[in-house]
Simulated scan of single mutants.
Amino acid sequence: MSLGFHPEFNPSQPSSAFACYPDGCCEILSVCEELDSFATEAGWRPLSSFADNRPVPEDFEGDPSELDDIQGPWEEWFTPADALPTIDGLIGALEENPDDVSETGDAEALLFELRALGDALRAADSARASFRLMLVE
């Protein structure tokens, strides 16, 4: 089983365009550092900034799921409109020249996931829902 990003919505969006991705965006997560670097250079907000970026205590050796016990629940939410310029920009750049964006990822799978994430965020934006990216296994 692999890790992936999955959008969580507040309030929840039962008809989310992302419901068909129960394991999340594995390709996006696997090349997230590259995507974040590209986004930052292009002047867009990094995708990882919409995920839980709280620092992990140096002496923590447990399972990531145990972090909530130490740090408390993560309560931060974002507006989809803040993420859409990044997602749309990455999609456009990948369509134009995939190697400029990610040298290690599967460009076709990455585009598929970014488009699905963009569709889900547009639907959430229309519903005035907030979102955040969660790690799922």
Rank of each mutant, 00 (worst) to 15 (best):
S65D: 15
Q13T: 10
P85Q: 14
F131D: 01
E108T: 07
P64S: 11
L47V: 00
L90Y: 09
F9K: 03
N97W: 11
L121N: 04
L114N: 03
D52V: 03
R128S: 11
R54H: 13
A116T: 14
W44N: 03
E103M: 06
N53F: 02
R45E: 02
G105Q: 13
R115M: 11
N97Y: 10
N97T: 05
A17W: 13
D119G: 02
F18A: 00
A107D: 11
C25L: 02
L110H: 07
H6R: 15
C26V: 05
G92A: 11
P7N: 09
D119T: 09
L29W: 07
W74L: 08
A116C: 14
F131W: 03
E27I: 04
P57H: 14
D106I: 02
I87T: 10
A120R: 10
F112H: 09
P14L: 10
A51Q: 01
D63N: 15
N53A: 01
Q13G: 00
D69I: 12
E113S: 06
F38P: 00
E34W: 05
D82K: 04
L29I: 01
L94F: 08
E33D: 13
F9N: 00
S30H: 10
E75Y: 10
A51E: 01
P7H: 06
L35W: 10
I87Y: 14
D69P: 08
F78C: 06
W77G: 00
D106H: 08
F18S: 02
I70F: 15
P11C: 05
L84C: 06
G62P: 08
L121T: 10
F112Y: 08
P14D: 06
A51I: 01
V101L: 04
E103G: 05
P80I: 08
